[in-house]
Design a protein around this nucleic acid. Structure first.
Length: 337
DNA sequence: CATCGAATAT
DNA sequence: GATATTCGAT
């Protein structure tokens, strides 16, 4: 996984033995399809056993075999495929803050949101920042605490940590250093509505702008006065990601296609939105994904999957095993996310 | 025990 | 540079 997903990187990963390259942050919808790759590998190996492995392009796939061995046989003996290991920590490296999306604007985008990869970071748009400023203003100097700000802002999905982070940024860039009260070790507190705050520690201070310093929110510059007069709106929401790579890679793309390993796109695998396990197992039997279109960065698979491989008893067993495992695994994952 | 916020990581 | 996360402090 990487937060960069240009074709060159993907190619390197694949050549190094990766089975599938995923762009971070991972979303559950992409994860749902992972089991198919495991199953396919299993099926492939079953076939290999029966027909002998020295047959064709064994060399070319050396790394690929190793990958399979480590990640499947090992964990089969564990019988939990490693899911119990640091289960809480492991949970997909699916970090809360990273997948959150904040839309306090238009409402009709729920459907669309299912397909759009969440942004990695909260973007403090001018609109968001205005709410922040409003809250901070209302609270006043000495009472600007993330929790209170968060409440006043009343933005669904926004977290206290994010507010705290933003507050910190504003204080750093904006606060005159002279106003910084020292931060001594201990101190008995007595005043204020916040009983546990030391007087000396500079809690809840109002974000101030240093004279001459620049602070940007979204792409607006803010000065000490009237932070509200900006109308840029949110224009540049999500552009980047489509361009930004300098590699011309039709050949690379073709390699990926012909190697048959990678099917990934900006929007996740789009073969089956309903995620039906039974039909997905069938789908697994085919390694002939139909490639419909691609750009420099992505390969998109089509909706139709051809069932070209015959089913045999051995394969069926393998399929059922994997099916059961991934069913529960994904169920668990879904629950926690 | 919640949460603050400077320091640090990403 | 902006945002997220950590971690000792309160």
């Amino acid at each position: 996984m990487s937060d960069k997903a240009n074709a060159t990187l993907v190619k390197c990963a694949i050549e190094d033995g990766a089975f599938l390259f995923m762009e971070k942050p991972i979303v559950v919808d992409e994860l749902k399809y992972l089991w198919q790759h495991v199953l396919r590998e299993k099926a492939r190996r079953n076939q290999e056993k029966r027909f002998g492995e020295g047959s064709s392009d064994h060399n070319h796939n050396e790394n690929y075999y190793q990958f399979g061995r480590q990640n499947m046989e090992d964990e089969n003996t564990n019988d939990d495929m490693g899911m119990n290991r640091n289960s809480s920590k492991n949970k997909l490296t699916y970090q809360k803050g990273r997948v959150e999306r904040i839309d306090f604007g238009s409402s009709d985008n729920n459907v669309l949101n299912q397909y759009v990869k969440p942004k990695t970071c909260t973007e403090w748009t001018p609109e968001l920042h205005e709410k922040f400023i409003a809250a901070v203003t209302k609270l006043g100097d000495g009472k600007c605490f993330p929790k209170d700000i968060l409440e006043l802002m009343n933005v669904p999905g926004l977290t206290r940590m994010q507010v705290a982070s933003h507050l910190q940024k504003c204080r750093h860039g904006w606060q005159p250093s002279r106003d910084r009260r020292p931060r001594p070790k201990k101190g008995s507190d007595s005043a204020n509505s916040h009983p546990h705050r030391s007087k000396t520690k500079m809690y809840g201070s109002f974000p101030h702008l240093i004279q001459g310093s620049k602070a940007t929110i979204g792409n607006m510059e803010y000065s000490t006065h009237s932070p509200g007069t900006n109308n840029m709106g949110q224009q540049q929401q999500q552009q980047q990601g489509t361009s930004d790579n300098n590699v011309s890679n039709y050949s690379i793309t073709n390699e990926i296609i012909s190697s048959g390993n990678v099917v990934a796109s900006d929007q996740g695998l789009q073969t089956d939105d309903s995620f039906d396990f039974v039909s997905s197992v069938d789908a697994l039997l085919s390694t002939d994904f139909d490639l419909q279109e691609f750009d420099n960065d992505h390969v998109v698979v089509s909706n139709q999957v051809n069932l070209t491989t015959a089913v045999n008893p051995t394969t069926c067993d393998a399929i059922n095993e994997e099916h059961d495992f991934w069913s529960s695994w994904i169920a668990e994952v879904s629950r926690d996310c």
